[in-house]
Amino acid sequence: MGKRLWVERNKDGSWDAYSDEGAHIKFGKGKGQFNPGDLMKIALAGCGALSSQFAIENSLGEGKGARIVVDGTYDPDDDAYLNFTEQVDVDATDAHLSQEDADKLEERIRRHIAKACTVEHTYEHETPVRLSVKVRH
């Protein structure tokens, strides 16, 4: 099983998410807060960023990365996202790549994301969720 995660409600109505390794993020439905749908998009973008990091740094140098923008089509009738669009932008202007090298880097990025992005793999499959509710009294 993976890393244990949990969320807790704050008095102001926002929520905090925690991991047993010490990670933390605040979310909610208020202005300036990420909502759960936003977190889904962040998970996809973050997975693409981490999956592509090796290919980009290998070609452009340590510390280089991509800007990844994710958008989605939301269906209010089903309260679900129908699809996501992920745009990976790499600024390689300082590297002065030839068109051939830029094309090779693009292909490497695509392969790395296709191979290593667990979030994308999960979103592409129907993923059952088993819900358990316990009320302490």
Score class of each variant (00 low, 15 high):
Ser98Lys: 04
Ile68Trp: 05
Ser19Thr: 02
Asp75Cys: 13
Phe27Tyr: 11
Arg111His: 13
Leu105Val: 05
Leu82Met: 07
Gly46Cys: 03
Val7His: 05
Asn58Met: 07
Lys64Gln: 08
Asp103Val: 00
Asp78Gly: 15
Arg110Lys: 12
Ala80Gly: 11
Asp78Ala: 14
Gly30Asn: 04
Glu57Asp: 06
Trp15His: 12
Phe84Tyr: 01
Leu60Val: 02
Val69His: 15
Tyr81Pro: 05
Tyr123Val: 07
Val7Arg: 09
His96Trp: 10
Leu60Trp: 01
Lys64Leu: 06
Lys3Gly: 15
Arg108Gln: 11
Asp91Trp: 01
Asp75His: 08
Tyr123Thr: 02
Ile56Ser: 00
Asp16Glu: 06
Leu105Lys: 07
Arg4Ser: 14
Ser98Met: 08
Asn35Trp: 14
Ser132Lys: 07
Tyr81Asp: 00
Ser132Ile: 10
Lys104Ala: 09
Pro128Gly: 12
Thr118His: 03
Arg108Asp: 14
Phe84Pro: 12
Glu126Trp: 14
Pro76Ala: 08
His112Pro: 13
Asp75Asn: 10
Gly32Phe: 02
Ala55Tyr: 14
Pro128Trp: 09
Ser59Val: 04
Asp79Cys: 06
Arg108Pro: 07
Asp71Glu: 13
Asp20Cys: 08
Gln87Met: 14
His112Val: 06
Ala116Gln: 15
Asn83Trp: 12
His24Met: 02
Ala55Pro: 12
His24Gly: 04
Gly32Tyr: 01
Cys47His: 09
Tyr81Phe: 00
Val7Gln: 00
Arg9Glu: 10
Asp91Gly: 03
Ser19Gly: 00
Ser14Ile: 00
Ala17Asn: 09
Ile25Arg: 05
Phe54Trp: 09
Gln53Thr: 06
Ser98Val: 01
Ala45Asp: 07
Val90Pro: 02
Thr85Asn: 03
Ile42Val: 08
Glu8Gln: 07
Phe34Asn: 03
Gln33Phe: 13
Glu124Gln: 11
Asn35Arg: 05
Ile25Val: 00
Glu120Asp: 06
Val7Met: 06
Pro128Cys: 05
Asp89Gln: 15
Ser52Asp: 09
Gly37Pro: 05
Phe54Met: 10
Lys64Trp: 11
Ala66Cys: 01
Phe34Gln: 10
Gly30Ile: 06
Arg111Leu: 12
Lys134Trp: 13
Glu62Arg: 14
Phe54Ile: 14
Trp6Gln: 04
Leu97Ile: 09
Asp75Ile: 04
Lys3Trp: 03
Ala80Arg: 10
Val129Met: 10
Tyr18His: 04
Ser98Arg: 11
Glu107Leu: 15
Tyr123Asp: 03
Glu126Asp: 13
Ile42Gly: 09
Ala55Gln: 07
Tyr74Lys: 00
Lys104Cys: 05
Thr122Asn: 06
Leu44Asn: 07
Glu86Phe: 12
His112Ile: 10
Cys117Lys: 09
Ile113Leu: 03
Tyr81Gly: 00
Lys64Met: 08
Ala55Leu: 05
Asp16Gln: 07
Lys3Ile: 11
Arg110Val: 10
Gln33Ile: 09
Ser98Thr: 02
Lys29Cys: 15
Thr73Asn: 12
Asn10Lys: 03
Gly32Arg: 01
Cys47Gln: 09
Leu97Met: 01
Gly28Phe: 01
Gln33Ser: 04
Asp91Ser: 03
Gly13Ile: 01
Gly30Gln: 01
Lys29Glu: 15
Val90Leu: 06
Asp78Ile: 11
Asn58Leu: 04
